[in-house]
Design a protein around this nucleic acid. Structure first.
Lengths: 225, 225
DNA sequence: CGCGGAACTTCAGATTTTCTCCATTTTATC
DNA sequence: GATAAAATGGAGAAAATCTGAAGTTCCGCG
């Protein structure tokens, strides 16, 4: 999980990043409002850990910024202020949870995970692409409101394409994503052809447009628009 | 009933879990605040047994966490501290009862049950899904108004499916929920197949629709509508 | 202390679903 | 037009699931 920590107090900032990194996350940090806004404009994070009391301005500005950008980062506010007002203000503007200093790192982590999960799974559980709607939790795929049945490989493939729509994906990448490295680089891509064929047929039979284009010599591309 | 025991003293922890398991509960345990927060984030329990004095922090953090997550687990605090302060603090933050060491296991169990009953009574004790009605307190299942008899595993399974209706549930998740994590990832799912078969038969024989769909390669899903 | 029944687990064969492979045809590139 | 890449249809292999029956465990009861 990619996390941005916005916290001006150096000791705390380093503690948090070290702790989260030790857990296998990729954690970046900054100490000011200005630096935070730059980072948030340029990169995508899964979670943002936001201290409200920053030297160069109110952390709420970060929330405004994210909101204006239409970004969906999960935001966890940390703050020394314990007033109900601040808490409510943060949650109203779009934060997902609120933690008051001092706190245990373990709890911070647990909340972070919870917030992220809630955001990605519960609220945003429908993946929509034009006439194709995927309910990730239910593993349900609809085309034009009609339910279609995909096999595991087809489903994984579709999800992978949708996650990379507009980009060319090599057959090697597909093989790696769907089979992992148990499959030692077969020299034939016959099985990919077959699954592509089946996925295409099911989508088009259900009335979807022909998004899945092949790129000669490379792989495939799922049209972005 | 699925119970989490958070207690750092090993002897006591094992005594409690053994005692409760012997009673037909599924009881998991952990010895630290951190492990507890992780488990509580990832799984659902009916009851939490919480020791306040943990090596890596104050057990009250667990209560905060549950509250922030909007979870409804019944919490019973156990603690060596007998001060009125702690007691009040725990109850204020959201614990449901308080027990002071040392105590008799029988009393622990009685309080646990009482707390759980109170909690479920106050919330909705009837779980209704179309023609299936479950009286959680009475452990009663009706289909089209007719009472059917389920074994413990079947009942737990049905409850779990209903709590996650519309979502695909992996066989591993089912195994973990019904047998706890002592079950070291058996490579065979035969017992799940069998219980599923029996549950299906009982439901359908009683006139219910065929809601319990299998999802090849993953697990099962209880249709949402 | 053993008996009987219910619940649970294990097992083996049948069935279903999905995956892979192969031969053939079509398409893209130069 | 030659060549490599991709698409297609179908068949057999493999994997997952279902099923019925047999074997175990557990618990109450005489």
């Amino acid at each position: 999980m990619k996390i941005l920590v916005i916290e001006d107090e150096r000791g705390l900032r380093e503690n948090i990043t070290n702790y989260l990194n030790a857990d296998g996350n990729i954690c970046e940090s900054c100490a000011s409002l200005e630096a935070a806004l730059v980072k948030l404009t340029d990169y995508h994070y899964d979670c943002v850990l936001l201290d409200i009391g920053l030297p160069d301005g109110d952390g709420f500005a970060v929330l405004d910024h994210l909101k204006a950008d239409g970004k969906m980062e999960a935001v966890l506010i940390i703050s020394a202020r314990n007033s109900l007002d601040d808490r409510l203000k943060g949650l109203n503007i779009g934060a997902d949870d609120y933690l008051t200093k001092p706190f245990h790192l373990a709890e911070l982590k647990a909340r972070l995970m919870a917030v992220f999960r809630r955001k990605t799974l519960n609220t945003n559980s429908k993946l929509v692409f034009n006439e194709i709607v995927i309910d990730v939790l239910g593993r349900n795929v609809e085309v034009n409101g009609e339910h279609i049945i995909l096999t595991k490989k087809e489903y994984d493939m579709l999800l992978y394409f949708l996650a990379n729509k507009g980009r060319v994906i090599s057959k090697n990448a597909i093989a790696e994503h769907l089979w992992g490295d148990e499959m030692d680089m077969h020299d034939s891509f016959d099985f990919i052809y077959t699954h592509i064929k089946n996925l295409r047929k099911k989508l088009i039979d259900a009335g979807s447009a022909d998004y899945l284009k092949s790129v000669y010599g490379i792989g495939y591309k799922f049209l972005a628009t």
